[in-house]
Nucleic acid binder design. Structure first.
Length: 608
DNA sequence: CTATCGACTTGTTAATATCGGA
DNA sequence: TCCGATATTAACAAGTCGATAG
């Protein structure tokens, strides 16, 4: 493998040299140019999935890149833009002013009214002040940022009003930056980097009730950055007069650069785009693990049902938790450090206060009501009848506990995953989410697709299948602000189309009558034309109606996350091939790039 | 066994680009 | 051609899970 990689790397360099001599050699013959073009196309269509993978745990042999793009330096405000303290204008030092602008930009946001946000912001802001400023500015409520706020609003308005040429110029500059910094060479191939820009400084906005909201996210400098590349590559150069924190050559990891963020103290990375080999291989592998689970899921289910009867509490808890993870597609639920993050839970970290038991509810028995905040503080609410044994176990787990006690006090994700590992190689809690999502899509597609439906109707079925998964995974969204209006607009269009249709039908009728009377060629043609028109309008109307249904059903559901992360793309590709649906109807450009491997390899008979 | 770290995936939202009709 | 709606992308936060140190 090593040799192969080195050889290819060499080829690539030759290619580059080619580029260099191009201007000099004007008479360069056509064959060479064409050869190059072919090579380039070949590069674009590189099928990494047809190559062997590394088996030694290394992720690459060769890695070369230009390092990250840093946030632009702070530009002080023009003098006319004032900050007022206690009603009087006050000129701030540059560092204090910069932090003040972060707050000023957010004035319209609800965040800035929240106590914790204000407290955290003010504390961190004061750290940036000169001692003079610090002694003057002691109360955030006496700070008036509105002039600054208006200035920024005007700025963004001006940006919108820019001329076409100016906008074009900015676009080109971005493109240049992308071309220069947005790609790397990994082994023998040029690959797209996911996030090559360093996050600019600003105020941290956590999600949900985050104890650290409003804290200052500091500016990242070259001295904070660890570069990862290969020894024999052209190393990225730090900006003039600066140094990297470290340059390392670790091919056991996939990242190109990293830094430690100051809010949680966690590490952030620059990594490759989902279309890259390194991400694609991993993604593919994920679905293969889920498919292996498919083969032994019955055994595992029998096992945990058995374990509900265990003498040992820890085993019963483990078995009930696993049942929830399997049936409800809950996340594993790692413990979190209190006070560091918003209070959210997953399965293993559920507390007594998050469930309610109802021996009888309406016409159902043994109902469990879940109500908790999950990842990103998204509420999970569900009422679900469970088997009697599960219900009895839950009652047992709840005995003598306070609302804030753990439901599964003898269990955590580490214990659970160790157990799962014993049941199947590579099995962890999240595999159940992937498995259940993908199997649901496949089964729903089978159930919902009608062979004689039109293409739009088939796509509606696809979206419905996708929706079933999104509901399972609790991928909700707030209804878009403009939802009602856009629904109305669509309805208006439908009404108009309906009128058009009846008008067209009338015309067709008239044309037919005309033809009956005259029997000439011209009237015959007219009938045909009208018939076509009716047909076209019928089709358009149907399309609109399908669209309306789809949108209505999608009001509170977000399909993106499941499509991107949980559904084996080969299921969708196979479905498209089977029903002759263009893949573009299901996946947009980015998605097609990410799933290129699946589009290439899945046939219409693919089974998850 | 627990706590922490490191690397990676999964998730929402805001910003921006594109589309389609007036 | 302009404008608002919709689709796409960027940004970045928040999870999962394995490794390691104490």
């Amino acid at each position: 493998h090593d040799k192969k990689a080195k050889k290819r790397k060499h080829e690539y360099e030759e290619d580059e040299e080619d580029e260099d001599i191009k201007p000099k050699k004007k008479t360069k013959d056509k064959k060479v140019t064409e050869g190059k073009k072919a090579k380039k196309e070949e590069e674009e269509k590189w099928k990494w999935w047809e190559e062997e993978r590394y088996t030694d745990g290394s992720k690459w042999r060769f890695l070369e890149h230009k390092g990250p793009v840093f946030a632009p330096p702070y530009e002080p405000l023009p003098d006319k833009v004032k900050f007022y303290y206690d009603g009087k204008p006050l000129k701030l030092s540059a560092p204090a002013e910069e932090v003040a602008t972060f707050f000023a930009k957010m004035l319209d946001h609800e965040y800035t009214t929240k106590d914790i946000f204000r407290k955290n912001f003010f504390k961190d802001w004061r750290k940036e002040m000169t001692s003079e400023e610090k002694s003057k500015i002691t109360d955030l409520n006496k700070c008036n940022f509105s002039d600054m706020n208006e200035y920024f609003k005007a700025q963004s308005e001006a940006r919108k009003q820019m001329s076409k040429e100016e906008k074009q110029k900015i676009k080109e500059e971005n493109e240049r930056l992308l071309q220069e910094y947005g790609f790397c060479i990994m082994d023998n191939h040029k690959e797209r980097i996911g996030n090559f820009r360093i996050e600019p400084p600003g105020l941290f906005r956590g999600r949900g009730d985050h104890p650290k909201m409003g804290m200052l996210k500091r500016r990242i400098r070259p001295e904070d950055i660890i570069i990862n590349c290969s020894k024999d590559s052209k190393h990225p150069k730090p900006p003039p007069g600066t140094k990297w924190k470290e340059v390392r050559y670790d091919n056991k990891v996939t990242w190109l650069a990293s830094w430690t963020e100051n809010i949680q103290g966690s590490i952030k990375y620059i990594m490759l785009n989902p279309s890259s080999r390194i991400k694609g291989e991993k993604d593919w592998q994920k679905y293969e693990t889920a498919r292996r689970l498919k083969k032994c899921v019955d055994r595992i289910r029998n096992q945990y049902r058995d374990d509900w009867k265990s003498k040992e509490m820890r085993i019963r808890q483990r078995a009930v938790a696993l049942y929830f993870i399997d049936k409800l597609a809950l996340r594993a639920g790692n413990e979190k450090e209190e006070g560091e993050t918003a209070d959210t839970v997953g399965c293993c970290s559920l507390r007594v206060e998050h469930i309610k038991l109802y021996p009888k509810m309406d016409d159902q028995e043994y109902v469990v009501e879940f109500d908790f905040l999950g990842k990103d503080s998204i509420r999970y609410y569900n009422k679900i009848p469970v088997e009697k044994r599960v219900f009895k176990n839950l009652q047992l787990f709840l005995e003598n506990k306070q609302p804030e006690d753990d439901l599964f006090d003898r269990l955590n994700t580490s214990i659970l995953n160790k157990h799962l590992q014993e049941l199947m190689d590579g099995l962890t809690a999240k595999v159940f989410r992937t498995y259940n999502a993908s199997i649901t899509l496949q089964q729903q597609l089978k159930e919902l697709t009608c062979s004689d439906d039109s293409i739009p109707a088939k796509i509606l079925s696809y979206n419905r299948a996708n929706r079933a998964v999104a509901i399972l995974c609790n991928h909700q969204r707030a209804p878009p602000k403009t939802f009602e209006k856009s629904m109305q607009n669509l309805q208006t269009k439908i009404d108009e189309k309906q009128n058009q249709l009846s008008a067209a039908r009338k015309q067709l009728k008239a044309a037919k009558a005309d033809h009956k009377a005259s029997h000439d060629d011209k009237s015959k043609k007219a009938v045909e034309v009208k018939r076509k028109a009716v047909q076209r309008i019928e089709e358009q109307l149907m399309k609109l109606q399908v669209q309306a249904t789809d949108r209505e059903e999608n009001k509170q559901i977000a399909l993106g996350t499941s499509k991107l992360n949980y559904l084996d793309p080969r299921i969708s590709v196979a479905w498209c091939k089977k029903w002759d649906i263009p893949i573009e109807k299901i996946y947009n450009k980015t998605q097609r790039e990410k799933f290129a491997w699946a589009i290439d390899m899945a046939e219409k008979d693919y089974e998850f």
